[in-house]
Design a protein around this nucleic acid. Sequence first.
DNA 1: TTCAGTACTAAGTGTTGCTAAATAGTGGTA
DNA 2: TACCACTATTTAGCAACACTTAGTACTGAA
Lengths: 114, 114
Amino acid sequence: MGTQMTEMLKGTLEGIVLSILAERPAYGYEITAELRDRGFTDIAEGTIYALLVRIERKSLVSVEKVASEKGPPRKVFTLNAAGQLELNEFWSTWNQLVERINHLPNQNNTSKGN
Amino acid sequence: MGTQMTEMLKGTLEGIVLSILAERPAYGYEITAELRDRGFTDIAEGTIYALLVRIERKSLVSVEKVASEKGPPRKVFTLNAAGQLELNEFWSTWNQLVERINHLPNQNNTSKGN
DNA sequence: TTCAGTACTAAGTGTTGCTAAATAGTGGTA
DNA sequence: TACCACTATTTAGCAACACTTAGTACTGAA
Protein backbone atom coordinates (compact mmCIF):
# COMPACT_ATOMS: atom_id res chain seq x y z
CA MET A 1 0.00 0.00 0.00
CA GLY A 2 1.04 3.62 -0.32
CA THR A 3 3.32 4.43 2.54
CA GLN A 4 1.38 7.54 3.37
CA MET A 5 -1.94 5.76 3.88
CA THR A 6 -0.19 3.06 5.89
CA GLU A 7 1.12 5.65 8.31
CA MET A 8 -2.17 7.48 8.49
CA LEU A 9 -4.02 4.31 9.41
CA LYS A 10 -1.92 4.08 12.52
CA GLY A 11 -4.20 5.30 15.23
CA THR A 12 -7.32 5.31 13.10
CA LEU A 13 -7.64 1.68 12.08
CA GLU A 14 -8.61 0.60 15.57
CA GLY A 15 -11.42 3.15 15.64
CA ILE A 16 -12.54 2.11 12.20
CA VAL A 17 -12.84 -1.53 13.24
CA LEU A 18 -14.50 -0.58 16.51
CA SER A 19 -17.10 1.42 14.61
CA ILE A 20 -17.87 -1.58 12.43
CA LEU A 21 -18.28 -3.75 15.51
CA ALA A 22 -20.59 -1.11 16.97
CA GLU A 23 -23.08 -1.91 14.24
CA ARG A 24 -23.08 -5.63 14.92
CA PRO A 25 -20.78 -8.42 16.08
CA ALA A 26 -18.45 -9.76 13.43
CA TYR A 27 -15.46 -12.04 12.92
CA GLY A 28 -12.08 -11.24 11.39
CA TYR A 29 -12.58 -12.49 7.89
CA GLU A 30 -15.92 -10.71 7.69
CA ILE A 31 -14.46 -7.43 8.97
CA THR A 32 -11.68 -7.60 6.40
CA ALA A 33 -14.28 -8.03 3.65
CA GLU A 34 -16.41 -5.19 4.95
CA LEU A 35 -13.39 -2.89 5.08
CA ARG A 36 -12.73 -3.64 1.42
CA ASP A 37 -16.35 -2.81 0.63
CA ARG A 38 -15.93 0.46 2.44
CA GLY A 39 -13.00 1.54 0.31
CA PHE A 40 -10.17 0.33 2.53
CA THR A 41 -9.17 -1.90 -0.34
CA ASP A 42 -5.68 -2.85 0.54
CA ILE A 43 -5.54 -3.44 4.23
CA ALA A 44 -3.66 -6.67 4.86
CA GLU A 45 -5.65 -9.44 6.51
CA GLY A 46 -2.86 -10.06 8.97
CA THR A 47 -3.20 -6.48 10.13
CA ILE A 48 -6.84 -6.96 11.07
CA TYR A 49 -6.21 -10.16 12.96
CA ALA A 50 -3.38 -8.57 14.89
CA LEU A 51 -5.60 -5.63 15.73
CA LEU A 52 -8.36 -7.95 16.92
CA VAL A 53 -5.93 -9.72 19.21
CA ARG A 54 -5.01 -6.32 20.61
CA ILE A 55 -8.53 -5.10 21.29
CA GLU A 56 -9.36 -8.44 22.85
CA ARG A 57 -6.34 -8.14 25.13
CA LYS A 58 -7.48 -4.62 26.03
CA SER A 59 -10.92 -6.07 26.87
CA LEU A 60 -12.80 -3.82 24.48
CA VAL A 61 -14.71 -6.78 23.08
CA SER A 62 -16.11 -10.11 24.12
CA VAL A 63 -15.28 -13.13 22.02
CA GLU A 64 -17.26 -16.20 21.11
CA LYS A 65 -16.22 -19.14 18.97
CA VAL A 66 -18.89 -20.09 16.47
CA ALA A 67 -18.82 -23.07 14.08
CA SER A 68 -18.87 -22.32 10.36
CA GLU A 69 -20.26 -24.45 7.56
CA LYS A 70 -17.61 -23.16 5.24
CA GLY A 71 -14.38 -23.55 7.11
CA PRO A 72 -12.72 -23.41 10.50
CA PRO A 73 -14.64 -21.97 13.46
CA ARG A 74 -15.08 -18.22 13.55
CA LYS A 75 -14.09 -15.92 16.38
CA VAL A 76 -17.00 -13.52 16.68
CA PHE A 77 -16.19 -10.21 18.38
CA THR A 78 -18.80 -8.14 20.18
CA LEU A 79 -18.18 -4.58 21.36
CA ASN A 80 -18.62 -4.19 25.11
CA ALA A 81 -19.08 -1.08 27.26
CA ALA A 82 -15.36 -0.37 27.46
CA GLY A 83 -15.15 -0.72 23.69
CA GLN A 84 -18.00 1.73 23.17
CA LEU A 85 -16.24 4.18 25.45
CA GLU A 86 -13.01 3.80 23.53
CA LEU A 87 -14.94 4.35 20.32
CA ASN A 88 -16.45 7.55 21.67
CA GLU A 89 -12.99 8.78 22.56
CA PHE A 90 -11.82 7.85 19.10
CA TRP A 91 -14.48 10.02 17.49
CA SER A 92 -13.67 12.87 19.79
CA THR A 93 -9.94 12.70 19.03
CA TRP A 94 -10.59 12.25 15.33
CA ASN A 95 -12.91 15.25 15.17
CA GLN A 96 -10.33 17.36 16.96
CA LEU A 97 -7.67 16.38 14.48
CA VAL A 98 -9.93 17.03 11.48
CA GLU A 99 -10.82 20.42 12.88
CA ARG A 100 -7.19 21.42 13.32
CA ILE A 101 -6.10 20.13 9.97
CA ASN A 102 -8.98 21.97 8.30
CA HIS A 103 -7.51 25.22 9.52
CA LEU A 104 -4.08 24.56 8.13
CA PRO A 105 -2.81 26.84 5.36
CA ASN A 106 -2.49 25.63 1.78
CA GLN A 107 -5.32 23.17 2.20
CA ASN A 108 -6.12 21.35 -1.02
CA ASN A 109 -9.88 21.71 -0.87
CA THR A 110 -10.87 19.33 -3.63
CA SER A 111 -13.55 17.69 -1.50
CA LYS A 112 -15.13 20.82 -0.04
CA GLY A 113 -18.81 21.19 -0.65
CA ASN A 114 -20.12 17.70 -0.10
CA MET B 1 -0.35 13.43 25.44
CA GLY B 2 -3.38 11.26 24.98
CA THR B 3 -2.25 8.01 23.44
CA GLN B 4 -4.94 8.17 20.79
CA MET B 5 -3.84 11.53 19.41
CA THR B 6 -0.23 10.40 19.48
CA GLU B 7 -1.04 7.46 17.28
CA MET B 8 -3.22 9.51 14.98
CA LEU B 9 -0.45 12.01 14.38
CA LYS B 10 1.62 9.26 12.84
CA GLY B 11 1.40 9.89 9.16
CA THR B 12 -0.26 13.27 9.50
CA LEU B 13 2.32 15.27 11.40
CA GLU B 14 4.67 15.36 8.46
CA GLY B 15 1.94 16.78 6.24
CA ILE B 16 1.01 19.30 8.89
CA VAL B 17 4.57 20.59 9.12
CA LEU B 18 4.95 20.56 5.35
CA SER B 19 1.81 22.67 5.03
CA ILE B 20 3.21 25.22 7.46
CA LEU B 21 6.43 25.37 5.48
CA ALA B 22 4.38 25.87 2.32
CA GLU B 23 3.27 29.24 3.67
CA ARG B 24 6.79 30.41 4.36
CA PRO B 25 10.21 29.13 5.41
CA ALA B 26 10.59 28.51 9.12
CA TYR B 27 12.94 26.98 11.68
CA GLY B 28 12.23 24.24 14.20
CA TYR B 29 11.58 26.30 17.27
CA GLU B 30 9.26 28.56 15.31
CA ILE B 31 7.34 25.64 13.85
CA THR B 32 6.83 24.15 17.29
CA ALA B 33 5.41 27.46 18.49
CA GLU B 34 3.12 27.79 15.48
CA LEU B 35 1.82 24.27 16.01
CA ARG B 36 0.90 25.21 19.57
CA ASP B 37 -0.91 28.26 18.25
CA ARG B 38 -2.82 26.05 15.88
CA GLY B 39 -4.13 23.82 18.64
CA PHE B 40 -1.48 21.11 18.53
CA THR B 41 -0.69 22.05 22.07
CA ASP B 42 1.27 19.11 23.31
CA ILE B 43 3.50 17.97 20.54
CA ALA B 44 6.96 17.33 21.97
CA GLU B 45 9.72 19.56 20.63
CA GLY B 46 11.95 16.58 20.11
CA THR B 47 9.34 15.14 17.78
CA ILE B 48 9.45 18.16 15.50
CA TYR B 49 13.22 18.24 15.30
CA ALA B 50 13.33 14.53 14.50
CA LEU B 51 10.72 15.06 11.81
CA LEU B 52 12.71 17.94 10.33
CA VAL B 53 15.80 15.75 10.17
CA ARG B 54 13.69 13.20 8.31
CA ILE B 55 12.27 15.55 5.71
CA GLU B 56 15.71 17.03 5.16
CA ARG B 57 17.12 13.55 4.60
CA LYS B 58 14.29 12.89 2.15
CA SER B 59 15.23 16.13 0.33
CA LEU B 60 11.79 17.70 0.68
CA VAL B 61 13.30 20.95 1.94
CA SER B 62 16.35 23.08 1.51
CA VAL B 63 18.15 24.21 4.64
CA GLU B 64 19.96 27.39 5.49
CA LYS B 65 21.71 28.31 8.71
CA VAL B 66 20.84 31.81 9.89
CA ALA B 67 22.31 33.64 12.88
CA SER B 68 19.93 34.61 15.70
CA GLU B 69 20.19 37.51 18.11
CA LYS B 70 18.52 35.46 20.78
CA GLY B 71 20.39 32.20 20.84
CA PRO B 72 22.16 29.62 18.73
CA PRO B 73 21.91 29.83 14.94
CA ARG B 74 18.63 28.75 13.39
CA LYS B 75 18.18 26.10 10.76
CA VAL B 76 15.65 27.60 8.37
CA PHE B 77 13.75 25.08 6.25
CA THR B 78 12.28 25.95 2.86
CA LEU B 79 9.91 23.66 0.99
CA ASN B 80 11.23 22.65 -2.43
CA ALA B 81 9.46 21.13 -5.44
CA ALA B 82 9.69 17.58 -4.09
CA GLY B 83 8.29 18.79 -0.80
CA GLN B 84 5.35 20.47 -2.52
CA LEU B 85 4.67 17.25 -4.39
CA GLU B 86 4.75 15.25 -1.17
CA LEU B 87 2.39 17.78 0.37
CA ASN B 88 -0.06 17.41 -2.51
CA GLU B 89 0.01 13.66 -2.03
CA PHE B 90 -0.56 14.15 1.66
CA TRP B 91 -3.73 16.14 1.01
CA SER B 92 -4.93 13.57 -1.44
CA THR B 93 -4.37 10.69 0.97
CA TRP B 94 -5.85 12.64 3.85
CA ASN B 95 -8.99 13.54 1.91
CA GLN B 96 -9.44 9.91 0.94
CA LEU B 97 -9.20 8.83 4.54
CA VAL B 98 -11.61 11.50 5.72
CA GLU B 99 -14.08 10.50 3.03
CA ARG B 100 -13.99 6.86 4.03
CA ILE B 101 -14.22 7.54 7.72
CA ASN B 102 -17.17 9.87 7.13
CA HIS B 103 -19.10 6.94 5.73
CA LEU B 104 -18.48 4.70 8.69
CA PRO B 105 -21.47 3.67 10.81
CA ASN B 106 -22.03 5.04 14.29
CA GLN B 107 -20.29 8.30 13.46
CA ASN B 108 -20.40 10.70 16.36
CA ASN B 109 -21.39 13.82 14.46
CA THR B 110 -20.86 16.42 17.15
CA SER B 111 -19.00 18.73 14.78
CA LYS B 112 -21.35 18.52 11.80
CA GLY B 113 -22.67 21.84 10.62
CA ASN B 114 -19.75 24.14 11.09
C1' DT C 1 26.52 33.49 38.54
C1' DT C 2 22.42 31.79 38.09
C1' DC C 3 18.31 31.32 35.56
C1' DA C 4 14.87 31.73 31.85
C1' DG C 5 14.31 31.75 27.12
C1' DT C 6 15.96 30.45 22.63
C1' DA C 7 17.58 26.69 19.50
C1' DC C 8 19.18 22.12 18.14
C1' DT C 9 20.88 17.02 18.53
C1' DA C 10 20.67 12.24 19.58
C1' DA C 11 19.89 7.77 21.91
C1' DG C 12 16.47 4.62 23.32
C1' DT C 13 11.35 3.08 23.85
C1' DG C 14 6.63 1.51 22.62
C1' DT C 15 2.91 1.20 19.36
C1' DT C 16 1.42 0.14 15.06
C1' DG C 17 0.60 -1.61 10.25
C1' DC C 18 2.81 -4.74 6.81
C1' DT C 19 4.90 -9.07 4.90
C1' DA C 20 5.04 -13.76 4.74
C1' DA C 21 4.40 -18.31 6.06
C1' DA C 22 1.98 -21.76 8.42
C1' DT C 23 -2.24 -24.27 9.92
C1' DA C 24 -6.92 -25.98 9.23
C1' DG C 25 -11.71 -26.94 7.62
C1' DT C 26 -15.10 -27.38 3.52
C1' DG C 27 -16.58 -28.54 -1.08
C1' DG C 28 -15.77 -29.13 -5.99
C1' DT C 29 -13.38 -31.35 -9.79
C1' DA C 30 -10.09 -33.80 -12.72
C1' DT D 1 -7.68 -40.05 -4.73
C1' DA D 2 -5.34 -35.70 -5.18
C1' DC D 3 -5.57 -31.11 -5.87
C1' DC D 4 -7.44 -26.56 -5.65
C1' DA D 5 -10.23 -22.56 -4.23
C1' DC D 6 -12.35 -20.48 -0.62
C1' DT D 7 -12.97 -19.77 4.17
C1' DA D 8 -10.66 -18.57 8.66
C1' DT D 9 -6.99 -17.71 12.08
C1' DT D 10 -2.18 -17.37 14.11
C1' DT D 11 2.39 -15.70 14.54
C1' DA D 12 7.25 -14.12 13.82
C1' DG D 13 9.95 -10.42 12.15
C1' DC D 14 10.30 -5.72 10.08
C1' DA D 15 10.02 -0.59 9.31
C1' DA D 16 8.18 3.87 10.40
C1' DC D 17 6.94 7.11 13.59
C1' DA D 18 5.93 9.97 17.87
C1' DC D 19 7.60 10.27 22.57
C1' DT D 20 10.91 10.71 26.51
C1' DT D 21 15.00 12.27 28.24
C1' DA D 22 19.32 14.21 28.40
C1' DG D 23 22.71 17.02 26.63
C1' DT D 24 24.82 21.15 24.15
C1' DA D 25 24.98 26.07 23.25
C1' DC D 26 23.95 31.08 22.95
C1' DT D 27 21.70 35.50 24.91
C1' DG D 28 20.19 38.75 28.33
C1' DA D 29 18.18 39.83 32.81
C1' DA D 30 17.89 39.21 37.96
